[in-house]
Amino acid sequence: MNLPEPYRLLIFLAGTLAFVGFHAAYLVWVERKGAGRFQRRPGPTEAGYAGLLQPIADALKLLSKQVIVPPTSDAVLFRAAPMMVMAPALMCLAVIPFGETLVARKVNFGLVMVFAFGSINVMAIMLSGWASRNKYAIISAARIVSQNVAYEIPMLLVAITLLMMMGTMDLQEIVRKQAGWFWNWNLFQLAANPLMPVTFLIFYICMLAETNRAPFDMAEAESELVAGAFTEYAGMGFGVFFMAEYANVVVGCSLATILFLGGWQSPIGWLPGPWWFLAKMYFLIFCVVWVRWTFPRTQFYGLLNLSWKILIPVSLFTLVLTSVMLKLF
């Protein structure tokens, strides 16, 4: 089907919005069901079968609440922050290839694009914390910056490691190079770098930290900081932050799928590509929920120590190892 480019982009835009909305709503359901199961309770059961209508009820509740802007806050920035946190995640999804032809826009620098727009997220959450003029929010904003700056470094080092192996920044091309059986996936490219699974683990941990998910949810540490940077937000303002968090989780897991698990490549040559992509992505998202409800929240210095003392040296080592292996073989 050959549509003119602007119409194709519009259709993809609508599709991306629907994708993000659906995932934001139903990942909350997955999260609550998962939390329930991990803690030996049923989770939401009342609204619809197995609580499936619960996210819609939540959305209606959030939409019907008043959006309050505190009088002492910086009103312009306070209103702008939820938009700034949502838009970059949508931009990232524009370059993620869900299938061989299912990608909104083919960009040669897809990998850089995801990281570039991912970096705006920090700024937005920080502004939301600052604009609220609330002590808890400001403490949380300061924490978020130091956390995100710390974890951005090992994540980019891992990205460079993969870039050296692949020799391209085009996400579609990266997926194509992992064609064939599952041992062709980057995760199992032990010949290029014997520490590839460790690299994947570093990427995954950094992704958890960048999206402020437990055990790294310093941004919204309920018991310490009320709701962190989002304390003053009510109604849908609060809802948008949560949508953005889940959108970022989707982007992060998609990126991990593309970089390490072969994207839309089928491991057994059966079923079309997008289904495999979604299956791999959902598995990674399930692991995010699993980690969240299994590990307790780390302390703040523990979190920074993990990044600066363990993840950065290890990722530097894998970077050097990869370049040596590439040069030798």
């Binding site: 570039a116 700024m123 920080m126 600052w130 400001i138 910056v145 130091s146 951005e152």
Partner: peptide, 12 residues
């Protein structure tokens, strides 16, 4: 991602 975040952080 780097310069503006650094400045805001220091100012804050």
């Amino acid at each position: 991602g780097a310069v503006c975040v650094t400045i805001v952080f220091a100012v804050m």
